[in-house]
Design a protein around this nucleic acid. Sequence first.
RNA 1: GGAGGGUUGCCCGAGUGGCUAAAGGGGGCGGACUGUAAAUCCGCUGGCUAUGCCUACGUUGGUUCGAAUCCAACACCCUCCA
Length: 417
Amino acid sequence: MTSPNSDFLKAVVERGYLHQATDMDALDERALKGPITAYIGFDATADSLHVGSMVPIMLLRLLQKTGHKPIVLMGGGTTRVGDPSGKDESRQLLTDEKIQENIAGIKKIFSKFLTFGEGPTDAVMVNNDDWLRGINYIDFLRDYGKHFSVNRMMSFDSVKLRLDREQPLTFLEFNYMILQAYDFCELSRRMDCCLQMGGSDQWGNIVNGIELTRRVEEKQVFGLTVPLLTTASGAKMGKTASGAIWLNEERLPSYDYWQYWRNTEDADVGKFLRLFTELPLDEIERLEKLQGAEINEAKKILAHEATKLCRGEEAALKAAETAQKTFEQGAIGDDLPTKEIKSTDLEAGIGLLGAITEMGLTASNGEARRFVQQGAVKVNDQKIDDPRYSLNASDLDSDKVIKLSLGKKKHAVLKVV
RNA sequence: GGAGGGUUGCCCGAGUGGCUAAAGGGGGCGGACUGUAAAUCCGCUGGCUAUGCCUACGUUGGUUCGAAUCCAACACCCUCCA
């Protein structure tokens, strides 16, 4: 493959988005000639997306920035079926109402990353339920079913895995890939969409769609996948102890979002800067060369840029300020979780275990007890290892607040009113 | 429809009457070390009004002083036969 000439594909390659693609040269040529329309499909299984979807999201953004038209395809219809996906359990089926809510939540996130509208390169969001719901079974079988080889479908990893592990795969789930291929066909017909992108696990589905479109529409369309990211030490992106790193504010405070990026492993800094920020490449090269403690500067920039895109500049600055106060000055940042307490309650004494559980630092009193006994809990940076300890007025610092800490990174504040 | 095998904690997986809140591993978290990193070592990893109590080994009943372990029925899964 020669190196691409179009702005879009050039950036895709340089910034590390490319995993596999079909006929890159022809696609490159098409992208040089004028705006192309491309889509990525997303599930409607939750009302928000998490960091695991960030690579596809950034890819759509890049597409739009380089002068093309992104389509966000919501799998409202296919969510009603469920993807084989190699998981042993079939996916829980959701009600239509819940799916609608989920789509609304996800649209909110995309509106931060893409410009939606009617113009030639404005993004649009479509729901495959629009064309899947009305399908007539017999007609569909006749027109599309004949193009699918079961032999071939059995060879896809998602199916093979389930069969090899002797886990059930229902016919319903087996049909998922047919419906997904049909989506591409339909988008090509309706919106002249010529490119489907997605995670590398979607390669099989994408190729199916390309072939179906060629046979039914007699059009050449393209596919491009992005790598499925794991961190340098092999962990999945976007999962931490406290749960997924959600993109929406209702599910995850911006401070925590900022912290997630701030805690990137050294070995991932360059890769993440390329994928998740829009800094120029020469700047990124400079940053990833930083050694030792200096690389923390690069991580802060990563955290700032990533948070800015998703939560806005103000939220990013506030998070950075809180982090700086908390970690570098040992002070108390505004963004830390805070709870107001009555001074009369404090006079009576507030149990330490209950307090840290209430603040969400620990999940239960029992867990809180263990942490206290292990010496993981601090009150105003002073280690407390007595589980019976009771907070009282003498714990207030000069600003009339009490800082509670679990471990080095989790902090919360009690404020007297 | 018949025969056999299976269902254990977040996940994998041992356990076949009391010593079992259940081995081991993974994951996660905490501590030490550091740079809010990685690696390494140590510890923790059901809940509670806590020297005790409650809930938990697919579901419901039963046997027993005592059941994840034995019996019965049911549900789901797998394999083979029809």
